[in-house]
Design a protein around this nucleic acid. Structure first.
Lengths: 338, 338
DNA sequence: GTCTGGCACTCGGCCCGGGTGAGTGCCAGG
DNA sequence: CCTGGCACTCACCCGGGCCGAGTGCCAGAC
């Protein structure tokens, strides 16, 4: 077990390294932090910390830098979450309040997070797995051509074209529309399949084929919609990454463009509360030199999606976590209002 | 006026520099290209080209590199458009054929272009200025709350919530829906305002307020939708930019994230035919070290949007132009089919 | 007039070697 | 358990010299 002071030394190392981006030595530590002991003592502590794998030296006769494991300990035990200043809070609120629709909310959130943390921001669109159906609309574009429009409670709209085998009368259409809505409006996506299962049976023989087609398209759409989307911004901040650009930045950009990868990453994070994944803890190897801070957000108690930032492992964790959490809260509020 | 051979020298310089990314000298030129003259002669030609501002030396006793003006001449007079190989064509077609909806088409196009040119791809969504209305749907979510759904012929769907001052009966709603559609379906966005202008008058006094509200929301949506969107991909390719990363890459990433900037850039390009903007020809200063190759694409003869790539001024112009043009053609075909 | 070979010159890049200083590990003593 | 002292190790920072690619200019050949 590490003594209190050694933890304090680790904290100091992390803080200094994050600030200066340079390996930190024993002497510098005693000068910048009131640890109350001499450099020699610190050296012993550092040696112990290194034995335990919390810090490492880039090369002999250089200072120490934290390892992923060191950051882990720092985040878990040593760092708090730094609350934002009240001007910052006001700025967030003002900025988000101007949003006009869901796309705009997400877009503004991304820009806000990127600017606040000076890192890459990732915002997932509200997930539809827990969403409910607000309305289903059926339109006849032509006698044997329908359009299905699905509206969700999170404000998303999806449409699909349907080619029917046989013409479908206006009355049948109105009938189907009414019955469909009475069954599924307000229900969760996951419950829809069984709610509509027996619907074709209640129609006349001629119409059953079309009704079945419509239902299968609806179910398909629900499944597709459950696949999540996300928006990413602030990639220019990657240029402040470190000295050895090309090699570091490239895989990160590639990973960020693969939305599938990022969605998987978000999926691995806790649904509630904040998750910090440090360096190699990230499954994707392109992100081995980055940390990902994520948190769920939602209009009510339940999280409907996640947002977060991607930055170098050498990041200001308390500040980043504070910003991420604050933004998530405000976005939740905005969503609840609309 | 420059002699034939001097143009040939410029062409050789551009080609070599694009390939090696290093200043090219007179000796190397004679070795790699059959110019039929000695290095000394080339030197004279190079001096002349430099006087005219087509090439420059990074420092004394180094080779020459093309200037923006040199690339300009190269593109205008010396370079053709390199057609793609037929396997490449097939690959494009296969890849694009798998698309399921508009978002998917645009998404695939971006990935395709980025991969083909190994540069940053920019694809504008089909513009709605020339689009027509396919359908307008009105739904009553609550007695005094409507939802407007607009469907365009390019397959886009937009919805808006409308809070009415007074409840709006189901029959009035059906009436409005029918009349609205009979007037605007198949018409261009730009024509809609005058087509619906007198619509409120034909309704009963009580409903006129709501009808007006609905119409104003519709017009607003049309205007908003006319604002163009775009998708960008392949930013990881920026890492192959040059040696002096941070300074070069950063403003480019920033510009790319500002979609407004990119849209303006596309807007400045010719509507038909290919446009190449080289280095400082780009209005945005962040793109001073990049060239932008764009071309319009569309389902018919008319271009409905533009796509292109952003890369270093030191790019393979013939190849890039070939890829951009080919992709634009295939996307046009796909759009025409759907 | 144009091209060519020759020549002197320039200057960035590379390698080498010494000096410097930050940082370390170890040890004996308080 | 802490501390001061000491020897040691390297990364980093010059400065200098060498090398070679590339240039401009010029006199002579075609």
């Amino acid at each position: 077990m590490l003594s209190e002071r050694r933890l304090e030394v680790l904290r100091a190392i992390v803080q200094d390294y994050v600030g200066t981006e340079e390996p930190v030595g024993s002497k510098a530590l005693t000068e910048r932090h009131r640890l109350g002991v001499s450099p020699a003592t610190i050296r012993n502590d550092m040696a112990a910390l290194e034995d335990e794998g919390f810090i490492a030296q880039p090369h002999t006769s250089a200072g120490r830098i934290p390892t992923d494991k060191g950051y882990r300990l720092f985040v878990d035990k040593l760092a708090g979450v730094k609350p934002l200043s009240s001007p910052e809070r006001r700025a967030i609120q003002n900025f988000l309040d101007g949003a006009v629709d869901l796309d705009d909310v997400v877009g503004r959130t991304v820009r806000l997070l990127a600017q606040l943390t000076r890192q890459v921001a990732v915002v997932q669109y509200p997930s539809l797995t827990r969403s409910t159906v607000r309305h289903v609309e059926l339109l006849a574009l032509a006698p044997a051509r329908l359009m299905l429009v699905l509206i969700t409670d999170t404000g998303r709209v999806e449409q699909r074209l349907i080619d029917c085998q046989a013409p479908f009368g206006e009355t049948s259409l109105a009938d189907l529309r009414a019955r469909l809505n009475s069954r599924v409006v307000g229900r969760r996506f996951a419950d829809v399949p069984q709610l509509v299962q027996d619907l074709p049976e209640s129609f006349e023989q001629d119409d059953r084929g079309t009704v079945s087609t419509v239902l299968s398209v609806l179910l398909e759409t629900l499944v597709e919609e459950t696949e999540e989307r996300l928006m990413i911004g602030g990639t220019a901040n990657l240029t402040r990454f470190g000295h050895d650009f090309p090699l570091t930045i490239r895989p990160v950009l590639e990973a960020l463009e693969e939305h599938v990868v990022m969605l998987k990453l978000l999926g691995e994070a806790k649904d509630s509360g904040m998750t910090v994944r440090i360096g190699h803890e990230n499954a994707h190897e392109g992100l081995a030199s980055t940390s990902v801070v994520t948190v769920g957000y939602g209009s009510g108690d339940e999280a409907v999606a996640k947002l977060g930032v991607v930055g170098p492992t050498r990041m200001d964790y308390p500040g980043t976590m504070g910003a991420v959490r604050a933004v998530a809260r405000y976005v939740g509020q905005i969503l609840a209002e609309s």
